[in-house]
Design a protein around this nucleic acid. Structure first.
Length: 486
RNA sequence: GCCCCCAUCGUCUAACGGUUAGGACGUAGCCCUUUCAAGGCUAAAACAUGGGUUCGAUUCCCGUUGGGGGCACCA
């Protein structure tokens, strides 16, 4: 085909919890970048934390990404099955691969076994800190053979540390931030293999990004400081590193890192609140990325064709639930009524509106109330009163407390009971005439009528609402409400 | 404490040396209207700060301040 290497991106979560908003944005950017360039998007599970990784997290992460509609070309399909040609996409199933590279580095003298216990390491670290030294000493770097044997004889299992240069600097190119420089004398020899034999993050990540031929590593800002270590590992292994792009973080409304206390942070919570995945995607795409015309609404296809790294922001962005909500409303309004009902199914079910009770078709109600829906959960919330009596809101009670309300409702009930046809226009004419005859202002009649019939002060256009509700329900509710009024 | 990153309306952002500093969310007002929305119009609202460089800096450089991230056998 051509000689430009294939674009391959990846999202590599550690399964130690649900997928949060920040993780979604990273996933989205990787996915968009791959799709934009006709490349491949890989999902890799970094489960090397033996104590915190859980299978439930894996499932939650897979579900989250699927719900968002971000399909991956390679990676796990579930806990057992995988797709892709690069071996397992679960790191814990790739152990021999890391161990082989560790052996190589050991042989070449680029790494060494370290027998220090956590406590010993901590002591050394503390000492360096107190002396104001930039980097703690690595006691095992020059272990004598005798000392090494002593440790082995004592039954100590070594970790393996990678040797970082003592002087000079490590310069890293970042697609978003440009050149970033790190002083080597500040970098400590890092553990690449734990005493358990498992790899550490920085090592496994490098091995796999190389093995999986990842061309662009797009990840959160918190990884920028891992760059010197990773850059040196690539170099030591004789590998060409991929290109890197470090995304700024997402902040909560109070300017601190987005977390639980800012409300919902798990993607699945957004799903359960009634957000549309395409709206969340659009919103998140704009959180740290923009086009030069500051366009807001993108179709999925437009998003793919417009997205690129140069539009990415260097400074952290604050998550704004109000704007997300607005955007979801935009997407809701763009849906056909039948589609709204279909997508709202889980919410309608939960509200007992599926199977649909006797009454108007859900679809016609969706059409009626479409521009008011901000969330899928609003669909049942704004239509349930058509099917069953709901408790009157405080505002509705206040309207019904008007002195003339009782008489108005009784009058309307008597007037409408035999009235035909029970359809929008004739109903309006009839009720307006009623107002004129009794010398009442329209509002004095319309407001209590709405409140009595729907239990609320906001809602669909009045006369069409009456039509859809049907004579029987309207009359029954008018009578019942009137009877309750003193 | 040390290292790294960042800095335009309250928030997301546009601008790539010369603009009345633009758009969007949110907020306020008006219009539409039987309510609530939606829609339309209008308004208030920003270049953190001090030095340079330049004929000219929001834009380039340095300092300060502020914010964020990282300093694990966690990822």
């Amino acid at each position: 085909m051509n000689d430009t290497p294939e674009i391959r991106t990846r999202f590599a979560p550690s399964p130690t919890g649900f997928l949060h908003i920040g993780g979604v944005r990273t996933t989205l950017y990787n996915w968009l970048f791959a799709r934009h360039h006709g490349g491949r998007f890989v999902l890799r599970i970094e489960d090397t934390d033996e104590v915190r990784s859980t299978v439930d997290s894996v499932t939650a992460i897979l579900d989250s990404i699927r719900w968002l509609g971000l399909d991956w070309d390679e990676g796990p399909l579930d806990l057992e099955r995988e797709q892709g040609d690069f071996g397992s996409y679960y790191q814990m199933r790739r152990l021999p691969l890391y161990q082989e590279q560790v052996r190589k580095l050991l042989q070449e003298g680029k790494a060494y076994p370290c027998y220090c216990t956590r406590e010993e390491t901590e002591v050394v670290r503390q000492a360096a800190k107190e002396k104001g030294e930039p980097r703690p000493e690595d006691p095992c770097r020059r272990l004598t053979e005798a000392k090494r044997r002593e440790h082995e004889a004592a039954g100590r299992k070594p970790a393996v540390r990678f040797i970082m240069p003592d002087e000079g600097e490590t310069v890293v190119d970042d697609l978003i931030r440009g050149q970033v420089r790190f002083e080597n004398k500040l970098q400590q020899d890092l553990v690449i293999q734990k005493t358990t034999g498992g790899p550490t993050y920085n090592f496994a990540c490098v091995c796999d990004d190389h093995a999986m031929r990842i061309s662009h590593v797009i990840r959160g800002d918190e990884h920028l400081s891992n760059m010197p270590a990773q850059a040196r590992i690539y170099e030591a292994l004789g590998w060409q590193p991929p290109l890197f792009a470090h995304l700024s973080m997402i902040m909560g409304p109070d300017g601190t890192k987005l977390s639980k206390r800012h409300g919902a942070t798990s993607v699945l919570e957004y799903r359960d609140m009634g957000f549309l995945p395409e709206a969340l995607r659009n919103y998140l795409a704009l959180l740290g990325w923009a086009t030069s015309d500051s366009r807001q609404i993108f179709t999925p296809e437009d998003l793919i064709s417009a997205f690129d790294l140069p539009g990415c922001q260097k400074n952290p962005a604050t998550f704004d639930p109000a704007k997300l909500s607005w955007m979801n409303g935009e997407y809701m309004r763009a849906l056909e009524p039948a589609e709204i009902v279909r997508r709202a199914e889980p919410f309608l079910q939960r509200a007992g509106l599926i199977p649909q009770p006797a009454g108007p078709a859900l679809e016609s109600l969706a059409a009626l109330e479409r521009e008011k829906f901000k969330l899928l959960s609003d669909v049942p919330a704004r239509t349930d009163f058509f099917y069953r009596e709901t408790e009157a809101t405080d505002k509705a009670r206040k309207v019904l407390a008007a002195p003339e309300a009782k008489a108005v409702l009784e009058g309307l009930a008597g007037l409408l009971e035999p009235f035909a046809p029970f359809t929008e226009k004739p109903l309006e004419e009839c009720i307006r005439r009623f107002c004129a005859e009794r010398a009442l202002k329209a509002g004095q009649v319309f407001h209590p009528l709405r409140a009595a019939v729907s239990g609320r002060t906001d809602g669909p256009t009045l006369f069409l609402m009456l039509e859809l509700m049907g004579r029987e329900t309207v009359i029954a509710r008018l009578r019942k409400t009137a009877a309750r009024l003193a």
